[in-house]
Design a protein around this nucleic acid. Sequence first.
RNA 1: GGAGAAAUGGCAGAGUGGUCGAAUGCGGCGGUCUUGAAAACCGUUGAAGGUCAAACUUCCGGGGGUUCGAAUCCCUCUUUCUCCGCCA
Length: 423
Amino acid sequence: MLQINFLRENKAEAIRLLAIKYFNATEIIDQIIKLDDERKSIQKILDEQLAESNKLAKEIGGLYKSGNLEKANEFKAKTVELKQSSKSLADDLAQTSKTLTEKLIELPNIPHSSVPIGKTDADNELIYEEGEIPVLHVKAKPHWELAKDFDIIDFDLGSKVTGAGFPFYKGQGARLQRALINFFLDEAINAGYLEYQPPLFVNEDSAFGTGQLPDKEGQMYYIGEDNFYLIPTAEVPITNIYRNVILKETDFPIKNVAYSNCFRREAGSYGKDVRGLNRLHQFDKIEIVQVQQPEKSYETLEEMKDYIATLLRKLELPFRIVRLCGGDLSYASALTFDFEVFSAAQKMWLEVSSVSNFESFQANRLKLRFKDKDGKTQLAHTLNGSALALPRIVAALLENNQTPEGIKIPEALRAYTGYDLIS
RNA sequence: GGAGAAAUGGCAGAGUGGUCGAAUGCGGCGGUCUUGAAAACCGUUGAAGGUCAAACUUCCGGGGGUUCGAAUCCCUCUUUCUCCGCCA
């Protein structure tokens, strides 16, 4: 959620920048400013009436004490009148504020100045590439066949027990999952992150706080009976730790990491993109979340980007980093880098991580603030990134490391898997 | 699931209808003293809206109600604690 004062002071600039996300904000910003003016003027009148009411109520107390009942009753009648009109003003105020918030929520975050112009992922800017693309032997297979051959992931069994997109991992496959989870958590802890194990369900306030509601409602699993949402990422519970929180400057930097199952309905997905591990309804992810002071948030984004690169390097996977263009940038993000690993048998780049700076956009919804040096409260910045999402890492590991003998496990993981080769 | 108790400022904890945004203690900040620190003493110390600044308004778990007036009374929801039941 953007700040009204920012929109007031930088209207033309905001319209220009939002157009980079292909969002036409001209009309809505005018509406917002008008609603805010309305809100202020209603509040002003309401305040005056309430002040009058309060004053009279105090005087009535005094009049009773001095026994001046006649005057007291006269004042009473006045306050009753005031009460009625202030009640209707309060309703107006609530209605105006509600409409204002609804309008504000429609606006996406302003993209950072470095965001490239473009409409689709084809327009994303490649900023870095590392590692050698492996040359596979002629009989190389995609990961879903390998998973079956080695009997480490059972998609059919998942379909039977639950449905498509809910695989079983078994034997060495299950162990590999556990190894990756522990590896990613340990790496993060060594890099100074605090580990959390969050709830997998969140309430409505939390789903709203990180921007999943109302925009992505259909993408989340929902437990109607208790009004809970299944988390699509640990970002949701972890970031909501800071909902309605005022931090001290000394609390920074806040670096949290959490492993969780992630649940996504993925309504509307189909085709080769959803084959095997490429897109699941339930998957495992380790998420890093940072809360920072505004001046330092882009420095932090770089730090997170570098950190994620070290993970892929340790896993010996060829990867590249792209800067998302305006059209591909998510609603809440100001700047996002995607990490993609090359999946050698599918011969395609798979997105395994997305690291973003939301600036104060989430913080404004969350009411996540801090007291600066001058003692003023201001919105903090939030950032997060996957470090990393397992399924596509597993897909790439299986495909890229396949040999006639079996699938080789990268050095860094062996202490965790307890084996060198899937066979 | 059943019965009871409770929810107040960063923390602890008073306050049961009328200068209560809220005593007191701790903590924080500023100062006096000190070579420096501690102790002691003095002062200060919640948030939001609003304003050039003020005035003013709102907030004592959330929502609703009674009243001229509510932290205080009523209803409701949530959470916590104690006891019982069940249980990984």
